[in-house]
Design a protein around this nucleic acid. Structure first.
Lengths: 195, 195
DNA sequence: GCAGTATGTTTACGGTGCTCACATGAGAGC
DNA sequence: GCTCTCATGTGAGCACCGTAAACATACTGC
């Protein structure tokens, strides 16, 4: 019973509890603060400092978890995409993640992320690789790393612009259609000069 | 002399001064606070509230200014791009803006921007239209609005990913090259199934 | 059992956004 | 030119925040 949360003076597994508490607050759209997380976890305001160097450290841990969740979402589709339209659905998974968990998405991206020695950078790299692999499968003749970056940027940009309200959006269906048509448009674009 | 800043009890044009002061603080990478801006402007901590409803209002005003600056940067090149490689340079202007003025860029994007009745949304729309016009000129056969969105997303994603350190980056040249090769890769990608 | 250490608490400091009551003085109407 | 008004700036004060330091507790290995 050493790992259970018996709620004595020593919590037992505060670190884990803080992470799940903070994550739940993010999901609920609550504004985030170290003290608020501690309060909600039923612990003194400075207790988190025994487990996280500072607020950024907690956020980084959450961001890493979010990146792993995002990767899991992307893999959930089963078969990797094989066509551009498959690819658009893949992109929609990414965009939907951002819209479904906006506060978390903003933690994952939207700040410096210069974390030396963190598993956060690894999680981010894995997302990059995953996208690269998918695109490489569909476009075998392309410059794979560049296309991976371009693909990531495209879908990430769509997610950000939607998230920030830069693209008028009324319904989820509309978002999905916009993502699809954007993929279609850019992957079928032919320069006029090359005619 | 009614509009000069004579520094009596009444500042004269505090609103303008606050904006320029705040903008300079952003450029210098200083962390931003209403009180700090007021301090630096030599005015009491609550004076800004006479000109901005709250912190968000100040930020929104700065964001609008930033969006206009970005548009101006994009237009500065003179002739609109005519080829994909021209387009990549165009994208580099966008990315460079983000990297040169990161704090401002994060204000412009990176938050809700649900500003009803602001000139901020207009400024954002103008950037969108500008990109749409440019892309439409190069790809006359494409679905113009979708391609505009896709192009914006691509370049915006590149900017965000670089800004957030998601793409290992050592020198500005390296960034520029990555942007170029990303543009090349995605605009020349041919699906294997279409062979 | 006992020492040492990991973990949680308390108190405190300076900073923040924001509200409200008050001070000032520029400009409108006479 | 005088006064009244009201936009504009000030000040004190609230609740919150992140963080540090000193202290309390209880698990752990010996």
């Amino acid at each position: 019973m050493s790992t259970s949360s018996k709620a004595g003076y020593h919590h037992g597994n505060l670190r884990e509890t803080l992470l799940t508490t903070a994550m739940r607050m993010l999901e609920e759209g609550e504004s985030f603060s170290l003290r608020a997380v501690a309060r909600r976890a039923g612990v003194s305001p400075t207790a988190p400092y025994r487990h996280f160097a500072d607020r950024d450290a907690l956020e980084s841990a959450l961001a890493a978890e979010g990146l792993r969740d995002l990767k899991a979402d992307l893999l959930k589709g089963g078969e990797p995409p094989r066509s551009v339209s498959d690819l658009a659905e893949f992109g929609n998974v990414y965009v939907n993640f951002a819209l479904r968990r906006p506060a978390l998405f903003r933690l994952m991206f939207g700040n410096e992320c210069d974390d030396t020695n963190d598993d956060r950078v690894r999680a981010a790299a894995e997302v990059h690789e995953l996208l690269g692999g998918v695109l490489g499968g569909i476009f075998p003749d392309a410059d794979a790393p560049s296309l991976a970056t371009a693909g990531w940027a495209l879908v990430h940009g769509l997610a950000c612009l939607h998230l920030d309200g830069k693209l008028a959006t009324t319904s989820p269906d509309e978002v999905a259609n916009r993502v699809r048509s954007s993929f279609d448009a850019i992957f079928s674009a032919r320069a006029s000069a090359s005619k």
